[in-house]
């Protein structure tokens, strides 16, 4: 276990644990928030960051047994997944929110009065 492998393992463990922490935060937000929009707000952001951090850790560990061409290509693909989800996650969230708002779901308010008049003139 050369020093490089130990350092790589520590960095991978830290990255993936942060990724799982943000997944857990997104799940807690997803369950506790009262309304669709706030749930989407929680999961959209936390899952995207969780995916990016976990994919960074996994891409690093994919290089752990030497820098052969195969390993480099595999970790490049993993980083592509991370970048793709970093762009795609919020886009999908926006599409869902847009369709929900256009089909008439009003944001939750504490006293129940609608703060936006619907349908918009």
């Amino acid at each position: 276990m050369s020093i490089l492998t130990v350092v790589l393992n520590i960095v991978v463990i830290v990255l993936i644990s942060f990724g799982v922490f943000f997944f857990a935060a997104g799940t807690v937000g997803f369950l506790r928030f009262p309304d669709f929009y706030s749930r989407m707000h929680a999961t959209g952001k936390c899952d995207t960051l969780g995916v990016v951090l976990s994919c960074a850790g996994i891409a690093l560990y994919a290089l752990h047994d030497g820098l052969s061409l195969g390993n480099i290509l595999v970790s490049l693909k993993i980083m592509f997944i991370a970048v793709f989800w970093f762009l795609g996650g919020p886009t999908a969230t926006h599409a869902l929110l847009n369709s929900a708002f256009n089909s008439g779901i009003l944001p939750w308010t504490k006293d129940g009065k609608a703060i936006i008049e619907w349908p918009p003139k």
């Binding site: 799940t27 669709f36 749930r39 999961t43 899952d47 995916v51 993993i78 996650g89 869902l96 929900a100």
Partner: peptide, 23 residues
């Protein structure tokens, strides 16, 4: 409660399954 909550849960489960697949 609403249909679209179920859609988000599908999305959220899909994101987590992505990482489990890589692991």
């Amino acid at each position: 409660p609403t249909v679209i909550d179920r859609i988000i849960s599908v999305g959220v489960v899909g994101t987590k399954t992505l990482i489990v697949l890589l692991l």
